[in-house]
């Protein structure tokens, strides 16, 4: 009995709840991200259908509103033949979607999801800086993908992607760092602890939240904001030559990027695990806080999804103009607002 108990403890403590594994693979990592992608895509289709005079996914399971439709779609992507055109550069063509997904999840390794020391994946002193830095890695592989595809539409899409990323990642980084200016700390645990009193940074500095929100919306290429793979002139942009599971990875990649940013927004601006105070113990100290953060992030994503039914697509130069002419000054203003609030001791 004791040996079995020990094996159980080892599996639970040292494997499942070993912070790097837990955060990369379970919550909020790969498995949670997959479930979130399934839910959010379903919600997006359903919300759009509500606005658009129709039912959305329904027929596969009418009682639960067709919620398992995405499982069917996923199966279809997984079983579809992967056609690799002769003209592509095969190795980067195959590897870049996979690396993109892995790198997209990497920022989750850097963020602490609880205030208890034993459950930090990495020392959290500079976690905000590291997470933001890691989040800028994966878009590079979209550019690589478009180059490896050797297709005119893909190249145009890749160029647009690089333009958009340069502009909007900068806004996202600056927006997140304005939180550091407010709290004088890069430590996400500190940032969340300050928000414990109900003074969420998103409420204190709504300009920064708005700027980050728009930046995430644009840089992760959700439906009406998918300037790099805008359907009506670029077919599918960087993903034009992809088929089957590789294409599915690309489609999921956008949602995973958005999910990671939503986790960061939830932690930095929306109080993280705020109303709840972690208590030592695996469930109470690690599982529940991570769940609270995930739910907050999910709500952020749902709001982003709703916007697809209201807005259309910006032109690439307009999107860049908005970024460089409006949002970057706005973000700098938010940074200044944060500094001022810190100086006058509002936080």
């Amino acid at each position: 009995m004791i040996t079995w108990y020990l094996v159980y403890r080892i599996i639970v403590d040292d494997i499942i709840f070993y912070p790097p594994i837990y955060q990369f693979l379970i919550i909020p990592g790969l498995i949670a991200a997959l479930l979130v992608a399934l839910f959010i895509i379903w919600f997006e289709r359903k919300a759009a259908a509500f606005v658009q005079m129709r039912y959305g996914p329904r027929e596969i399971a009418p009682r639960i509103g067709g919620a398992i439709q995405l499982v069917a779609d996923l199966t279809r992507y997984a079983l579809q033949e992967i056609i690799i055109p002769e003209t592509v550069d095969v190795l980067p063509y195959i590897l870049s979607p996979i690396i993109m997904i892995i790198l997209a999840l990497l920022p989750l390794e850097a963020v602490p999801l609880t205030s208890i020391r034993t459950y930090f994946p990495i020392p959290p002193d500079y976690s905000l800086l590291i997470a933001v830095a890691l989040s800028t890695l994966s878009p590079l592989f979209v550019v690589l993908m478009s180059w490896a595809s050797n297709n005119k539409f893909a190249v145009v899409g890749g160029i647009r992607e690089s333009f958009i990323i340069t502009a909007y990642e900068l806004i996202a980084v600056l927006g997140f760092l304005s939180a550091a200016a407010m709290t004088q700390s890069f430590n996400i645990v500190n940032i969340v602890n300050i928000q414990m009193s109900g003074k969420w940074l998103g409420l204190l500095n709504p300009i920064a939240l708005l700027a980050v929100f728009i930046a995430v919306l644009m840089s992760t290429s959700g439906f009406p904001f998918e300037i790099p793979d805008s359907e009506s002139e670029l077919v599918a942009g960087p993903y034009t030559e992809y088929t089957g599971l590789l294409y599915g990875l690309n489609m999921g990649g956008g949602y995973i990027k958005r999910w990671v940013f939503s986790i960061l927004i939830a932690l930095v601006f929306l109080g993280g695990w705020a109303p709840y105070k972690p208590v030592p113990g695996i469930i109470t100290g690690y599982f529940i806080p991570s769940l609270i953060v995930s739910i907050k992030a999910l709500i952020v994503m749902a709001i982003m999804s709703f916007l697809r039914s209201v807005y259309g697509r910006y032109r690439v130069d307009q999107a860049l103009g908005i970024a460089w002419e409006i949002l970057i000054p706005l973000t700098l203003a938010a940074f200044g607002l944060g500094l001022a609030e810190a100086y006058f001791g509002i936080i």
Binding site: V51, Q52, M53, S232
Partner: peptide, 9 residues
């Protein structure tokens, strides 16, 4: 223009 709502409406 990527505005699916007008399309459906």
């Amino acid at each position: 223009l990527g505005h699916s709502t007008l399309y459906m409406w």
